[in-house]
């Protein structure tokens, strides 16, 4: 069975993570690099201590934002990866060598405001608190900065107003 679980969620980026990062390249003014990556584990690969290796071997700062992992199925892990630009690149090459597919996530979920009925169903599942209700006019509020593209809202939205950027 698909035992979906979410672990280690930490919606708040640390001060370090926020320090002078360019949103376009992930490069910081100090030669640091920060990327948000979606890792797809093939079935059977979940036994590998990937995160541990990224931290120990490549000196990377890892923040797991979202995880759906089951031993017998392909798993999905979304993480913030930060370190020197060289270390980040080496870490990403290591993932490829370990048969872990990754996708660098840029931007945030796309909210189609014309379709949205402001019901609030997406706020029930949003782990990052990017989606909340305005408690005065009861519109949906979307803080793109907080979104880490876990995509739960795209499935929870009853009217198809939430989609993944292409």
């Amino acid at each position: 069975m698909n035992s979906e679980k979410r672990i280690g969620i930490n919606g708040r980026a640390s001060d370090r993570a926020n320090a002078g990062v360019s949103a376009d390249t992930g490069e910081t003014s100090t030669g640091e690099k920060r990327v948000k990556a979606l890792l797809t584990y093939p079935p059977g690969a979940v036994g590998k201590p990937i995160t541990y290796s990224l931290v120990r071997q490549f000196n990377l700062w890892i923040n797991i934002l979202h995880a759906e992992i089951a031993a017998d199925k392909a798993g999905r892990l979304i993480m913030d990866i930060q370190g020197s630009a060289d270390d980040v690149d080496r870490g990403l090459r290591f993932l490829t060598a370990e048969d872990i597919e990754y996708e660098i996530l840029n931007g945030s979920i796309v909210w189609d405001e014309d379709k949205c009925v402001h019901c609030g169903a997406c706020t029930a599942v949003c782990p990052s608190h990017a989606l909340t209700m305005d408690n005065l006019d009861w519109s949906l509020l979307f803080d793109k900065e907080k979104c880490y593209l876990c995509r739960l809202c795209t499935r929870a939205c009853p009217v198809g107003a939430m989609s993944t950027p292409i």
């Binding site: 402001h118 609030g120 169903a121 706020t123 029930a124 209700m133 408690n135 006019d137 009861w138 519109s139």
Partner: peptide, 24 residues
């Protein structure tokens, strides 16, 4: 409507499914 409710010792976040904005 406050955003969370107390159930026993737990504070649980709440979410509406009915659109108050549209109802208004």
């Amino acid at each position: 409507r406050s955003g969370s409710v107390q159930v026993g010792s737990r504070t649980i976040p709440t979410a509406p499914l009915s659109s108050l904005k549209m109802a208004r």
